[in-house]
Design a protein around this nucleic acid. Structure first.
Length: 268
DNA sequence: AAAACCTGCAACCGCAGGCAC
DNA sequence: AGTGCCTGCGGTTGCAGGTTT
């Protein structure tokens, strides 16, 4: 959808955000009061295109709908989440998974976007708390971990995404051969809230030769984008390279292990 | 004081389902 | 039955502002 512009050849930058202005909000609110909720494309057609993003940009019905339901609707409760709400959210997420539209029904005045964002915040911090349901978490926040081992339960709550080591794709010291054809393949994204990743990690036992680069790790891990994570039983080691003993590659490569986080198979 | 880093959240994307024609 | 439009949903990303170094 190039209307949102700014996608470049390597897809690193997919769009440029263009915040709504006060005047635009007023126009949208007036239209909703006049025409009611719905008919978003009609409403979008009657709001002047927005400027100020470096280029002219037309509103879309989808954009108007999101703006209204997530920000402008007077019924929205914009106060910070209480401790009680946070606990309720965590409990409901365990029960319903990432079905935010279902969960939001338990929070009158909140939006699904609020719920989703709040859960991401909670999921990113809960494992660092003493009240965490996991008793195996021993790594204190702030400890430099580069080169040290970390507990995977802690890791699960901290890593937001990673992929096979593209950082070393042109480097002979890089990726294990059994993963070489998967360079750049996202193994998991979506943050700690990802049910798939959580389920996968909980269910899978790791082989000592599993070695992959981290895509995006919080700074207090002591690791950074492109660093490797070597999986070893129930622990993982962060390293700048991948010096583990590598398994013998099969003749056709077809029997080699593929770490399929999302359960989508091995197709490219 | 400045730079780097981190956090929270608004806004976008892509897809799927429902509905009218 | 097929098509296209509209709406809703969940995942993802960009960025402002706060915090740390």
């Amino acid at each position: 959808m190039e209307a949102y512009g700014a996608a470049n050849s390597n897809n690193k930058r997919r769009f440029t955000k263009c915040p709504w202005g006060r005047e635009e909000d007023d126009i949208l609110t007036a239209h909703v009061k006049t025409h009611g909720v719905g008919n978003w494309n009609y409403i979008a057609d009657h709001i002047p295109g927005r400027t100020g993003c470096g280029f002219f940009l037309s509103f879309t019905g989808q954009s108007c709908r999101l703006r209204w339901f997530n920000q402008l609707d007077p019924k929205i409760d914009k106060s910070p989440f209480s401790e009680e709400e946070q606990q309720k959210l965590l409990q409901l997420q365990r029960e319903y998974g990432n079905r935010w539209s279902t969960i939001v029904r338990f929070f009158p005045g909140r939006t699904d976007n609020q719920i989703k964002n709040q859960y991401h915040v909670l999921a990113g911090s809960q494992y660092t708390k003493a009240s965490s349901p996991s008793s195996s978490i021993t790594e204190p926040v702030g400890t430099p971990l580069n080169g040290g081992y970390i507990d995977l339960s802690w890791y699960r709550s901290t890593v937001s995404s990673f992929e096979v080591g593209s950082q070393f794709s042109n480097n002979s010291t890089g990726v294990a051969p059994h993963l070489a054809d998967r360079i750049g393949t996202p193994l998991f994204s979506g943050g700690p809230s990802s049910v798939n990743a959580e389920t996968w990690l909980a269910a899978r036992s790791f082989n000592s030769f599993d070695c992959m680069s981290l895509g995006n790790v919080y700074g207090h891990l002591g690791a950074s984008r492109g660093d490797f994570m070597m999986l070893d039983g129930n622990s993982a080691k962060i390293s700048e390279s991948c010096p583990v003993a590598l398994p013998t590659q099969g003749a056709d490569g077809g029997d080699l292990q593929f770490i399929d986080f999302l359960g989508v198979g091995t197709s490219e």
